[in-house]
Nucleic acid binder design. Structure first.
Length: 488
RNA sequence: AGGGAUGUGGCGCAGUCCGGUUAGCGCACUUGGUUUGGGACCAAGGGGUCGAAGGUUCGAAUCCUUUCAUCCCUACCA
């Protein structure tokens, strides 16, 4: 195991790559743009997934599974939708290989060409709405609240582990409603749910807002987003919830009979978060010593290290403590490896972001105590074994809170307000981060700012300052300030 | 997509310009011993055919062509 992680201030991208590698979250694979999610990385995703799945089910959703392959013709039924994804679709054209007649290996059998090519799903609206047409006949069939956990493929040019990969894992919810109002409420409810998950579980503060027309999901009437700030002050779109209007219902002829026996198109939403959240988690909390995980998402919350080595009496005491902690629902690992020294283990567990480390040595036992170290602040203290369970339980809560407080403070420090375009440009140049400014609501102005500075409108915030003003670029009327930032 | 760089045991690298003994080194690994409260030490071992394919040559990690992958910068992107 190599020791060095690139310092954040030296090269933030490299630091991120180092963390992913050294904390064993993911590996590159033989396939361009695709990663192997290693057990540690996958365990974090599973924790996220379990919690989100519970939240979806608590709000009335059920899981289902739709095909990986989508007939090409489906994708073209919604004009804006196909426009948005056409450039990054993987296409299946054949269904058979054959031995290479001219040499070793195998080649595509030209006689096995598919009559209609299949697209590997970049998202599933089309295949799902094609299916919903058969499922929805009456207002009694509504609402239809379905989620699926799946992989999708978007053939990206530049990829980075978790943040942007050609194949990624996500959940996509697809709901159908009788009324516009109900569909809008659904998309907002999920938006709130995502924000709550980000803050309570990931300890990652987010700004809730609506996307501009330019940044909106292809095929949506309204896209809601949660935007987080990473430690390099760039914005990360962490989750989106879309109100789709009747666009897909009309494209796929999904109609129902209302209680007056009149035929109407249904109203739709879709929403998703992906393994990108793992990247966001890393970039929100980790430091130059390695990964830092919030306790609620840490696969292992506490590690017990016998010092100086796994002597029987130390392991016995460690096992007692572990049992007490596990009875409280805390996940614990006891390190029994006799070949590594404590110092090595300390560094290793810090690298992997385990929130709490308990050291037990003979000197501690004499005093009936253990050494408790917390990853987030890198502090440690002696704690009486008698009160260890309460202490650790409370400590995990403290760490979870502290991470959120720190992340909020960081975002506050790096959020600025610009009144003029000159201010905006110098702020962006000198300080970066989020910049609140008035905008006239036009795509033209948004694109000008993007072209001039590289910053985009991350969202039109739903909460906070709603005072009207004048656009910083054109001086035209603006209904409220919006958030500009450079983004992932 | 443009620019730059890299690919040699599990990881990190040297060797490549100026082809030529059995391809080296550090970490990791195995065995034995001594150690052990913040990344231990000594000794002995095992493991690579040099990203892939083709070519030049008596001879290729080294030269040429093609290709794949990765990283960085810029551009692009629900």
């Amino acid at each position: 195991m190599a020791k060095e992680i690139t310092k954040r201030e030296d090269n933030y991208s490299q630091w991120y790559t180092d963390i992913v590698k050294k904390a064993a979250l993911a590996d590159h694979s033989a396939v361009r743009g695709c990663m192997v999610i290693k057990p540690t990385g996958f365990a974090i995703w599973e924790k996220m997934k379990d919690q989100l799945d519970k939240m979806f089910k608590d709000t009335g959703h059920v899981n289902a599974y739709f095909p990986l392959f989508i007939p090409k013709s489906f994708l073209s039924k919604e004009a804006e939708h196909v426009e948005g994804f056409a450039k990054e679709c993987a296409v299946v054209t054949h269904h058979r290989l054959m031995n290479n007649p001219d040499g070793p290996g195998v080649v595509v059998d030209p006689s096995a060409k598919l009559e209609e090519e299949l697209i590997v799903r970049p998202t599933s609206e089309t295949i799902i709405w094609n299916t919903y047409r058969d499922w929805i006949k009456s207002y009694r069939d509504l609402p239809l609240l379905i989620n699926q956990w799946a992989n999708v493929v978007r053939w990206e040019m530049r990829t980075r582990p978790f943040l942007r990969t050609a194949e990624f894992l996500w959940q996509e919810g697809h709901t159908a409603h009788a009324t516009e109002q109900e569909a809008i409420e659904e998309s907002r409810m999920i938006h709130d749910l995502y924000a709550q998950f980000a803050e309570e579980y990931m300890a990652m503060p987010v700004i809730k807002g609506a996307k501009t027309a330019n940044e909106r999901f292809a095929g949506a009437v309204e896209t809601f987003t949660i935007e987080a700030m990473m430690q390099d002050k760039k914005a990360l779109q962490a989750g989106t919830s879309h109100f789709l209007g009747q666009n897909f219902a009309k494209a796929f002829e999904v109609k129902y009979l209302n209680s007056e026996n009149k035929e109407e198109y249904v109203w739709a939403t879709s929403w998703g978060v992906s393994t990108r959240l793992v990247g966001g988690l890393v970039m929100t909390h980790s430091d130059d010593e390695g990964l830092v995980l919030p306790p609620k998402l840490a696969p292992i919350q506490v590690v017990i290290v016998p010092i100086p080595k796994p002597l029987p009496e130390l392991l016995e005491k460690g096992a007692q403590i572990a049992k007490l902690l596990r009875d409280k629902g805390i996940s614990v690992k006891i390190d029994q490896d006799p070949t590594k020294r404590p110092g090595f283990k300390f560094a290793e567990y810090e690298m992997k972001g385990i929130p709490v480390r308990i050291g037990i040595g003979p000197r501690d036992l004499e005093k009936n105590q253990v050494e408790v170290a917390r990853r987030d602040t890198k502090t440690k203290e002696g704690v009486s074994i008698d009160g260890i369970v309460d202490h650790v339980s409370k400590l995990l809560v403290d760490i979870q809170e502290n991470l959120l407080v720190k992340a909020k403070a960081f975002r506050a420090e790096n959020t600025h307000t610009a009144d003029t375009y000159d201010d905006f440009k110098s702020l962006l140049d000198e300080k970066g981060g989020f910049i609140e400014a008035h905008w006239d609501g036009t795509t033209e102005t948004e694109l000008k700012v993007k072209g001039d500075t590289g910053a985009t409108i991350r969202c039109i915030p739903i909460e906070g300052d709603k005072a009207p003003g004048k656009c910083m670029v054109t001086g035209k009327d603006s209904t409220q300030k919006v958030i500009f930032a450079k983004a992932y």
